[in-house]
Lab assay of single mutants.
Amino acid sequence: FHVTIHVGDITFHIHGVSEEEVKKLEELVRRGADWREIKKTIEEIEK
């Protein structure tokens, strides 16, 4: 999957994300995680 996440003024683009990881990111966004937490999760996914 290709994912784009907008957190305030920050936009993250992630490529090659599995469905499971998409759900993890959706959950973070849904519970209102700040951009640092989302960035950390994205960095883990990209490894």
Rank of each mutant, 00 (worst) to 15 (best):
R36H: 10
I42P: 00
E21H: 14
A33P: 02
K40D: 10
V3I: 13
H15D: 05
V29E: 02
A33F: 02
V7D: 03
G16A: 10
E26R: 14
V3R: 03
H6N: 07
I10E: 05
E46T: 14
S18D: 05
S18G: 09
K39N: 05
H2D: 15
G32T: 03
H13P: 00
V17D: 02
K23L: 11
L28D: 01
V17W: 10
R30G: 05
K47V: 10
H15I: 07
R30H: 09
E20T: 10
F1V: 08
T41F: 15
V7C: 09
H15M: 07
K47S: 13
I45N: 02
L25Q: 00
T11D: 02
V29S: 05
I5Y: 02
H2P: 05
L28F: 06
R31K: 10
R31I: 07
H13S: 06
R36P: 08
V3F: 13
H15A: 06
E20N: 10
V3Y: 13
D9M: 13
D34G: 13
L28S: 02
E46N: 12
E26T: 15
I45C: 05
E21Y: 15
R31H: 07
H2L: 12
R31Q: 09
E46I: 15
I42G: 01
L25W: 02
E37R: 02
E46A: 12
V17H: 02
E21R: 03
I45Q: 02
I42E: 00
E27A: 14
W35S: 04
E27V: 10
E20V: 08
E37D: 10
K47F: 12
I10N: 07
T4H: 08
L25H: 00
G16V: 14
K40Y: 11
V3E: 01
L25G: 00
T11K: 03
I10C: 13
R36W: 14
V7T: 05
K23C: 06
F12E: 00
E37L: 08
V3G: 02
L28W: 05
V17N: 03
S18M: 07
F1Y: 10
V17I: 13
E37W: 04
D9P: 15
W35K: 03
T4N: 03
I42T: 01
E20D: 11
E26A: 13
E19Q: 10
I14F: 08
E44K: 07
E27I: 10
L25I: 12
E44S: 07
D9L: 13
D34H: 13
L28R: 02
E27M: 14
A33W: 01
H2V: 14
V22N: 04
S18H: 05
A33E: 03
D34M: 04
V22A: 13
H2S: 12
E46Q: 13
K24L: 14
E19S: 09
R30W: 10
D34Y: 06
T41L: 15
I45F: 12
G32Y: 06
W35A: 07
K47L: 12
E46R: 09
H15F: 15
T41I: 14
F1K: 08
V29K: 05
H15Q: 07
T11L: 04
I5F: 05
I14S: 01
S18N: 09
H6S: 11
K23M: 13
E43V: 08
R31L: 08
I10G: 02
I42F: 04
V17Y: 14
T4W: 12
S18I: 04
G16N: 15
K47C: 11
G32A: 06
H6W: 11
L25K: 00
T4R: 04
K40E: 12
D34S: 15
H2A: 08
D9G: 15
T4C: 05
H2G: 06
E21D: 15
G8H: 03
K23R: 11
F12N: 00
R30P: 00
L28V: 06
E46M: 14
K40C: 06
E37T: 14
K24G: 04
T4K: 04
E43T: 06
E43D: 12
R36I: 10
F12R: 01
H13D: 04
H6D: 04
G16S: 10
E26N: 11
D9C: 15
F12I: 05
K24E: 06
T4M: 06
V22F: 13
A33K: 03
T4E: 07
E21K: 05
K39C: 07
V3C: 09
L25F: 07
H6T: 15
I42N: 00
H13L: 04
G32N: 08
K40A: 13
S18R: 08
L28P: 00
R31A: 07
I10S: 07
I42Q: 01
D34I: 02
S18V: 03
V29G: 02
T11H: 11
E20S: 11
I14G: 00
V3P: 01
K47Q: 12
R36G: 10
V22G: 05
I38V: 07
I38T: 01
E26P: 00
V3A: 05
S18L: 05
E26Q: 14
V17Q: 03
V22P: 00
T11G: 01
K23A: 11
I5H: 00
K47E: 10
T41M: 14
W35C: 05
V29T: 06
K39I: 10
K24M: 14
R30V: 08
I10M: 14
K23Y: 15
E46F: 15
E26K: 12
I14M: 09
K23T: 10
E21S: 12
V22T: 05
E27C: 06
E43C: 11
G8I: 02
E20A: 13
V7P: 01
F12H: 01
K24I: 14
G16R: 05
E21G: 13
E37A: 06
L28M: 12
E20I: 13
R31F: 06
H13W: 06
V3H: 05
R31T: 07
G32V: 02
V22E: 02
W35G: 03
G16F: 12
S18C: 03
I38S: 00
F1M: 08
T41P: 00
L28Y: 05
H15N: 05
G32E: 03
T11Q: 03
T4I: 11
E44Y: 06
E37K: 06
E27L: 14
F12C: 02
H6C: 09
E21F: 14
L28G: 00
V17A: 09
T11M: 05
I42D: 00
T4G: 01
H2Y: 14
I14N: 00
D34W: 05
E26M: 15
T11Y: 08
R36E: 12
E44Q: 10
K47N: 10
H2T: 15
E21A: 14
K39E: 08
G32H: 07
I45A: 03
I5E: 00
T41V: 14
A33L: 03
